[in-house]
């Protein structure tokens, strides 16, 4: 703890050893800011896609629909299917959708006031499954036997690909974060190495007066860590404002979930600290290597 305090506070002269401005300073601050900005979006994407996948899973898991084709026997077929469903293990509840509910489903395509009595519509039965669910293959065969042409649809046909897509997006968000962290570390290491090369005279002077390599490396590391922290803090704040300004879309759309909610706003606040940690490690390694090479 005291070492961390010593590092953060440092010796005032040691802190000022590294020239306060110049190309490497701009490079470090700008790259940390840009990467932090991107990291905030990657975190938002990661969280949004995770929530989206969970929402889709939660909303549709455990439900199924039986679709009975419109025909003269549709009512009798529906009654037979309902009986079969009531006798099937793994089914909690099955009920036929009312006309009003079918109207709601059709409204997005045909508008309000669809004359149901003049349309040949399939009969829809909403099914609620237990967690274990029924034997879908056996149940499908039985339903087909009771009502020819009837289909038992547990939504897996389109639910699974959507969940997979959301999961992939989530993974992409995580990979993006790793890439951003890697690029940040490499950029800062290059900037630090470049600063060490450009400040050969400073290092010579420090060695003449008895500075250990560890002291010199710490001076550069402290400076670059603080610069990365400052740049990342700026980039994070701008990124958070930008995410907050992302307009909400359709309620169920992907974009409507891109943002932070409640305690999620704490996640991006970690970015400057992670950037500082990366800068610390990258600069320390670059400085130690450079000083060793210089002899």
């Amino acid at each position: 703890m005291s070492r961390l305090r010593d590092f953060l506070i440092g010796d005032p002269t040691a802190t000022r050893i590294v020239p306060p401005s110049g190309f490497t300073a701009v490079l470090t601050i700008a790259s940390a800011a840009a990467m932090a900005f991107l990291a905030v979006f990657a975190i938002a994407l990661h969280l949004a896609t995770g929530e989206l996948a969970a929402r889709w899973e939660a909303e549709l898991a455990g439900t199924a629909t039986v679709r009975i084709p419109a025909s003269e026997n549709a009512e009798a077929d529906a009654a037979a299917v309902l009986t079969a469903l009531s006798q099937t293990p793994g089914i909690v509840e099955a009920r036929r959708l009312t006309d009003e509910e079918q109207l709601v489903l059709l409204a997005p395509w045909f508008g309000d006031g669809v004359p149901l009595d003049r349309l040949r519509l399939p009969v829809l039965i909403e099914v609620l499954e237990t967690d274990a669910g029924p034997d879908v293959t056996g149940l499908s065969e039985r339903i087909s036997a009771e009502a020819p042409g009837a289909v038992y649809d547990n939504h897996s046909r389109w639910r699974v690909p959507l969940a997979n897509a959301a999961s992939r997006l989530r993974q992409l968000g995580a990979v993006s974060l790793l890439l951003i962290a890697g690029v940040t570390a490499v950029t800062i290491a290059l900037a630090a190495s470049s600063a060490l090369a450009a400040n050969g005279q400073v290092i010579d002077v420090l060695r003449i007066v008895g500075a250990r390599d560890g002291w010199i490396a710490a001076a550069f590391t402290r400076r670059f860590t603080m610069r990365a922290f400052a740049g990342a803090l700026g980039g994070t704040i701008i990124g958070m404002i930008a995410v907050a300004l992302v307009p909400g879309g359709v309620e169920t759309g992907v974009l409507s979930g891109l943002g932070f909610d409640g305690l999620q706003w704490l996640w991006p606040l970690l970015v400057p600290f992670v950037a500082a940690g990366l800068a610390f490690g990258a600069t320390w390694v670059a400085a130690a290597r450079r000083l060793k090479e210089d002899g």
């Binding site: 002269t13 050893i17 420090l206 003449i208 007066v209 008895g210 500075a211 250990r212």
Partner: peptide
């Protein structure tokens, strides 16, 4: 490094940390 602190050196072309003040350079 420790030994160098016991040996003072003045070069013909003495080098300094140019962005530090004279006082800070002397105190290095």
């Amino acid at each position: 490094a420790r030994m160098r602190r016991r040996i003072g050196v003045v070069h013909q072309d003495s080098r300094f940390v140019d962005h530090l003040s004279v006082a800070e350079n002397v105190m290095l």
